[in-house]
Design a protein around this nucleic acid. Structure first.
Lengths: 84, 84
DNA sequence: AAACCATGTCAGGATATCTAACAAGACAGT
DNA sequence: ACTGTCTTGTTAGATATCCTGACATGGTTT
């Protein structure tokens, strides 16, 4: 009865993701451009993010803060993630 | 570690609520206008809804479908809800 | 018939997001 | 020191979304 959001449900616009991750829109788009993440799009071509995406951004951010560059993160995520 | 959304966190724009509730934007705004619900607003004055709001809309919708009018729903919700 | 209720629809304006481009600081290699 | 690459900022123009207010309409009540 209580409403929930499944982890894969793409229901968050970029602004909310910015707030939830403390990343800038520029960073979010750049990480996508670099293939670290592939958010869904709505009919108007606007990015829509899931909780899984947000979790991934937090991971990315923690790696960035540890000084790992995008190429490294890409490799780490590729080997860690079972994309079903 | 896993990301979650608290029930009171206002993170859904109206379009997502439309999809999640099968209500029209007109209905959503009308129910607010009638005092059935009071969604948050972001800095740009756009409505931002929480999971609690969505739950409330589902409740409202079920009453509407049972033929109860807005005045009746208002009373029901007012007596049922403990607004902390 | 007149009034009211709930919703649709439209217009004009404000806000949000998109892509593409250029700028710039940090850092690496030469 | 120079050059190139990486990451992020910023800006511009276009598109998408959302806002309020107004009028329209079918259904119900009086």
């Amino acid at each position: 009865m209580d409403p929930t959001v499944s982890k894969k449900q793409a229901c968050f616009p970029i602004r909310v993701v910015m707030e939830m991750t403390n990343l800038t829109a520029r960073q979010i788009r750049y990480y996508e451009e670099q293939g670290l993440i592939k958010p869904a799009r709505n009919d108007g071509n606007q990015r829509m993010f899931s909780l899984e995406d947000i979790e991934r951004f937090r991971l990315i951010k923690s790696y960035i803060e540890r000084g790992i560059n995008v190429a490294g993160i890409k490799t780490i995520l590729a080997t860690n993630v079972r994309d079903s």
